[in-house]
Amino acid sequence: MIAESMYQELILEHYKHPQGRGLRDPFDAEVHHVNPTCGDEITMRVKVGDGGKVEDVSYDGQGCSISQAAASVLHELTTGSTVPETLAVVEEFTRLMQGRGQVEPDEDVLGDAVAFAGVAKFPARVKCALLAWMAYKDAVVRSAS
């Protein structure tokens, strides 16, 4: 049924084996974001190197499979890219999530994050998927200041 399409194999895989989890040094900015309605939370650190390259995104948190898998996918997609590239992914991901399932995702931009497309049909879960991405955006802004 529909939830089955939300719990894509890739999401479950990231949930069970999160990539890049754990807070690491050095970092330029650390943020803590909470989803007050469900209590999901994430602490995220970002290290940006010379030439605006994202050297590390480390995180720790707790929450449902969607929020945790999103953080893991985000780590993979952002580490090693430039800040502007990653912000384009954030933007496309946000557009997909807020599209109520009506938006055709740009797979070239999103990569693995396209697996979250099914979440957009569940308004109550969209904030779960966005938690890590909003934290990342916040951390990047702070790291630049």
Binding site: M1, I2, A3, E4, Y7, D40, G63, C64, S65, I66
Partner: peptide
């Protein structure tokens, strides 16, 4: 996580 439990209970 309970959210995953609730989602699948409801949806399926």
């Amino acid at each position: 996580h309970p959210h995953d439990v609730g989602q699948i209970l409801d949806d399926e």
